[in-house]
């Protein structure tokens, strides 16, 4: 009876775990938690847990697991131990499935501190989603066309901080080979929102702080940025925040751009807003600048398909 109870609980633990993982994948909630490279493993793991749980429940013990028939696996015989495993592994995950809001609140962002220096961002894609329209295509920055053309990457912050401008950015600042001016050549690459505004990410504006050619591109244009609202020290000041994931949401780091509005803003903390305005860069020496976004229009909006940046 004890062995049967332990076996049943262990099998249920595996099946329950598999069910939670598959559920997060099927509902798309996993996108909020993991970098795209890790997501397939959750689905594979979920299926594997279900298979293992089924085999574990259905199959008879086929051979001794340890030498001399003396098993070190107390789960196999001890239903209390198996119940503990169920309580520690599956119950919290099941509770989290119902209780998690798939995002951080204001306090987590404040505790982690904002990354406002682009050189402190890890060398990852700005966005991995092909549907995202809010990324400057590397072509705009002069990226090599023959290098991973199907999945190009933006310049790495490490490259940016090394002193010499990254190859991609350096090429962007070079005059075009054929006629026209630099603006004409690169304007076509700037992503556009449906209303015609230049649609940028918070990261794009931060890259602009370190790269003069980007500042020239952004200055004077009507720009649209989507992010989460976080209040500032004055009623008309706030930050647009995005979370950048390296591996999973546990390592997410808030990146933010300060915004100045024309009047007092009353929006719920961490709610998603679309801010339309212009980017102003104040030179801070060494070829760098500090960006402030002057908002002309602020409106609530739905979260983007990829709420996290990668």
């Amino acid at each position: 009876m004890r062995v049967w109870a332990a076996k049943f609980l262990n099998g249920i633990t595996l099946l329950g775990l598999g069910g939670v993982l598959i559920s997060f994948c099927l509902k798309g909630r996993i996108d909020q938690y993991l970098h795209p490279q890790f997501r397939p493993w959750v689905l594979i793991g979920g299926i594997a847990f279900c298979v293992a749980g089924t085999v574990y429940l259905m199959a008879k013990k086929s051979m001794d697991c340890c030498l001399d028939g003396e098993c070190v696996h107390t789960n196999r015989q001890n239903p209390w131990r198996a119940a503990t495993a169920f309580g520690v592994i599956v119950l919290p995950l099941a509770m989290g499935t119902f209780l998690s809001k798939d995002g951080y609140d204001k306090q987590a962002v404040l505790n982690r501190g904002f990354v406002q220096d682009v050189s402190k961002l890890p060398g990852r894609k700005i966005s991995g989603s092909p549907n995202s329209q809010q990324v400057i295509p590397p072509g705009a920055l002069g990226a090599d066309q023959d290098e991973r053309a199907s999945a190009p990457e933006p310049p790495l912050p490490q490259d940016t901080s090394s002193g010499a401008p990254p190859k991609a950015l350096a090429k962007a600042s070079e005059p075009p080979q054929t006629g026209g001016n630099a603006d004409d050549g690169s304007e076509q690459y700037l992503p556009r929102a449906p209303d015609g505004n230049v649609a940028l990410e918070v990261t794009d504006l931060l890259y602009g702080e370190n790269e003069e050619s980007l500042r020239k591109e952004f200055t004077g244009k009507t720009i649209e940025v989507i992010g989460q609202y976080l209040p500032g020290s004055k009623p008309n000041e706030f930050k647009i925040v995005r979370m950048l994931i390296v591996c999973c949401a546990a390592d997410a780091r808030p990146i933010a751009v300060p915004v100045q509005a024309q009047k007092t803003v009353s929006v719920a903390d961490m709610s998603w807003v679309k801010v339309i305005g212009t980017a102003e860069f104040q030179e801070s020496g060494g070829g760098k600048a500090k960006v402030t976004f002057k908002a002309a229009e602020i409106e609530p909006t739905d979260p983007p398909q990829d709420a996290m940046l990668y």
Partner: peptide, 18 residues
């Protein structure tokens, strides 16, 4: 905050369990 805890906890679990 429970909201932050669940989000971070689940993310670590999803990343590490496989």
């Amino acid at each position: 905050s429970w909201q932050n805890f669940w989000f971070s906890y689940l993310a670590l679990a999803f990343e590490g369990l496989p």
